[in-house]
Simulated scan of single mutants.
Amino acid sequence: MTQIVFLLVPGLHLLDLAGPAQVFSTAAHNLDGAPYRLRYVAEQDDVPTAQGLPVRATTTWPELEPGDIVMVPGWRWGTGNPGWGRVGAATASRLAAHHQNGGTVASVCAGAFALAAAGLLDGRRCTTHHELQDELARRHPRANVVRDVLHVTDGRVVTSAGIASGIDLALHLIAVRHGPGAAARVARAMVVYARRNGDDQQIGAMLRHRSHLNDAVHRVQDLIDARFAEPLPLSALAAAGGVSQRTLTRLFGAATGLTPLRYQQLLRLEHAGHLIGQGVTVEAAARAVGFQDARMLRRLRSRTGATAARP
């Protein structure tokens, strides 16, 4: 029986906790040979959360074995609430001791600061939420902060970006222990669209180019997001936005810095990268995202600095 021990810190984000907990709970229910037992510990019985729903935990740590995982969900940063994000010296020592005894320690979002307080990030590659990366590097200069990735593993210390990326981290740990197929089964049971790779960007194309306020461009992006694998003539996109083709080209460029075609290509590249990272050949990934063959996919991946996988 493998224990997944969640260390709950005051001010924690519910999804930082619930996402990974759901992954391991689903694995225990759906996978043969995956007997996981979830436990929740804290420095106090009642733990306030950033979303206002208090959670209860035990203050007594279980006996830990090397195969167990201790995970620290993140918390809301910079609120001024006294005690939020606080990890005492005794708790930090427990984290360090578990790792020293051969165990795995993981964090989601600001949970990386708890691992850093335990000395577990010194000299190691790590990551955290993109808004906290500079602060982590400033406070802990011996940590090698890797920016704009979903999760990083270095010497049984696993750190991930913010909020929903905890699901990716937990699926990664399932894949390491039980294989990619098992992780895919868990993701499917959870209705997770795709298991993202650790080196995927924290902010995908849909988020990077959606911060504008132009309704017409958003309507066009909605169509491209839903049908990126299909041929989408500019006339059809303009009709979706309720503007002329010329006006769409001008508005789209002003709002996103891209043409509609380039935005569609970025989505295709991202989705192809997910497929290739899960073992799909370049040719099959190219066809799945709408390219006629792999040559265009390889060319675009080369232009964006992506490393083209071998067929």
Score class of each variant (00 low, 15 high):
Glu63Cys: 01
Leu64Met: 15
Leu64Asp: 11
Leu64Arg: 09
Asp68Phe: 12
Val72Pro: 02
Val72His: 05
Pro73Asn: 04
Gly74Ser: 05
Gly74Asn: 03
Gly74Trp: 02
Trp75Asp: 01
Arg76Ile: 13
Arg76Thr: 12
Gly78Trp: 01
Gly80Cys: 11
Gly80Asp: 13
Asn81Thr: 15
Gly83Asp: 08
Arg86Phe: 13
Val87Leu: 09
Gly88Thr: 10
Ala90Thr: 13
Thr91Ala: 06
Ser93Asn: 10
Arg94Ala: 12
Arg94Gln: 15
Arg94Val: 13
Leu95Arg: 06
Leu95Gln: 09
Ala96Cys: 01
Ala97Asp: 15
Ala97Gly: 09
Ala112Met: 07
Phe113Tyr: 11
Leu115Ala: 06
Leu121Ile: 05
Gly123Asn: 11
Arg125Gly: 02
Cys126Lys: 02
Glu131Asn: 13
Glu135Cys: 06
Arg139Ile: 04
Pro141His: 09
Arg142Gly: 10
Ala143Ile: 11
Asn144Asp: 15
Asn144Ser: 11
Arg147Asn: 10
Asp148Pro: 10
Leu150Met: 14
Leu150Thr: 05
Val152Phe: 04
Asp154Gln: 07
Asp154Gly: 06
Gly155Phe: 07
Val158Lys: 00
Thr159His: 06
Thr159Ile: 03
Gly162Ala: 13
Ile163Lys: 01
Gly166Cys: 01
Gly166Ile: 01
Ile167Tyr: 03
Ile167Pro: 05
Asp168Trp: 03
Leu169Gln: 02
Ala170Gln: 08
Leu173Lys: 02
Leu173Pro: 00
